[in-house]
Simulated assay, not measured.
Amino acid sequence: MGLIDVHAHFLLPEYVAAAERAGHVRPDGLPAWPEWSVQRHLDLMDSTGIAKSVLSVSSPGVHFGDDFRAQVLARRVNEAAAELGRQHPGRFGFFASLPLPDVDGAVVEAQYALDVLHADGVVLTSNAGGQYPGDPSWDQLWRELDARSAVVFLHPTSPPQWRQVALDRPRPMIEFLFDSARAVADLALTGIFNRYPNVRFIITHAGGVLPLLGDRLDLYRSTYVPTSGELPSVTSQLQELWYDVAGTPVPHQLPAVAGTDHLLYGSDHCFTPASAVAAQIAALDQSPATANWRTRTTANAVQLLGERVSL
């Protein structure tokens, strides 16, 4: 069994056109949208030993200001992803896009994607229109996902105040990691992880800055956030999450992630070029911190996503 890539992106021409009409000509401050085609993606998979890619739409998601159009676009990309899986059996799965912050629309699309299209889970961005995932208005969605024991792939996006903090640098360089931390901290401190234990979360980029923050969050919440006192420690909640290794996890970052039984492989293609994917795999192969990482991450993906990912 080859690698199972849980962090892989696809781009439909109509999705890029919709994003550009909404002003996302330079997505999250990158120079341009990358090119994507199913054949190039398959070529990359074959050359790097990736057996299956679980596709998702990356930042900035599918909601560009209008709820109805976001619902239509979410349905379009989800049905296209499901069709790719049918056309290439065993090679592609997908995490379904949801039109958040439209919670009602997101619930409808999650039901359709999981029950009818048989998505492997859903993809959520770290914030949706400035709302973070611990917002009380999202509880209806969490109940639906919990009832289905759904996998949630939590992908970073630009923070609401990105103009003030990014300083014209590409937001994936710094801001993505911190916005992921904001989202996960919000989920932990508002009790979402605790109240909806059947939802399984994948956090990108080996947790980003999260592994360094758990103890600090616990210290501060014990003094300043007394309402969270009945919850498990943030550190213990972080240990229950799953983490992909997209980005630059070796040699420095990965050793800070608690344990290896929840590690998953992620390429971040097509936003990460094929040459960089190959270099990252070579670095993982050579690092003492990632011994047997291929076997471990594949077994973990099968455990998380079910036997059908290995078909």
Results as ranks from 00 to 15, higher is better:
residue 311 L to W: 00
residue 144 E to T: 15
residue 54 V to C: 05
residue 150 A to V: 08
residue 109 E to M: 07
residue 273 P to K: 07
residue 204 T to Q: 14
residue 120 D to K: 05
residue 7 H to R: 08
residue 215 D to S: 12
residue 215 D to T: 04
residue 196 Y to D: 02
residue 178 F to W: 06
residue 253 Q to H: 13
residue 262 H to A: 01
residue 119 A to H: 13
residue 108 V to H: 08
residue 70 A to D: 05
residue 309 V to A: 04
residue 114 L to P: 01
residue 117 L to G: 04
residue 154 L to P: 00
residue 46 D to V: 05
residue 84 L to H: 08
residue 296 R to M: 13
residue 57 V to R: 02
residue 260 T to S: 07
residue 86 R to S: 15
residue 96 A to V: 01
residue 3 L to N: 07
residue 308 R to I: 01
residue 60 P to W: 07
residue 41 H to N: 12
residue 241 L to Q: 05
residue 156 P to R: 06
residue 219 L to R: 13
residue 268 D to E: 14
residue 183 A to P: 06
residue 169 R to D: 10
residue 192 I to V: 15
residue 135 D to I: 13
residue 211 P to S: 01
residue 309 V to Q: 03
residue 81 A to T: 11
residue 181 A to I: 10
residue 133 P to N: 07
residue 280 Q to Y: 09
residue 27 P to I: 03
residue 307 E to M: 03
residue 49 G to F: 06
residue 61 G to F: 08
residue 267 S to T: 12
residue 145 L to A: 01
residue 205 H to I: 08
residue 67 D to N: 12
residue 260 T to C: 00
residue 157 T to S: 10
residue 213 L to C: 07
residue 296 R to N: 06
residue 165 V to L: 14
residue 150 A to Y: 01
residue 206 A to I: 12
residue 280 Q to T: 15
residue 173 M to T: 10
residue 268 D to L: 13
residue 68 F to P: 00
residue 56 S to H: 01
residue 103 V to N: 07
residue 95 F to V: 04
residue 82 A to L: 09
residue 114 L to Q: 06
residue 151 V to I: 15
residue 220 Y to I: 03
residue 255 P to E: 10
residue 135 D to P: 11
residue 250 V to D: 04
residue 1 M to W: 01
residue 214 G to W: 01
residue 104 D to L: 11
residue 204 T to L: 13
residue 263 L to S: 00
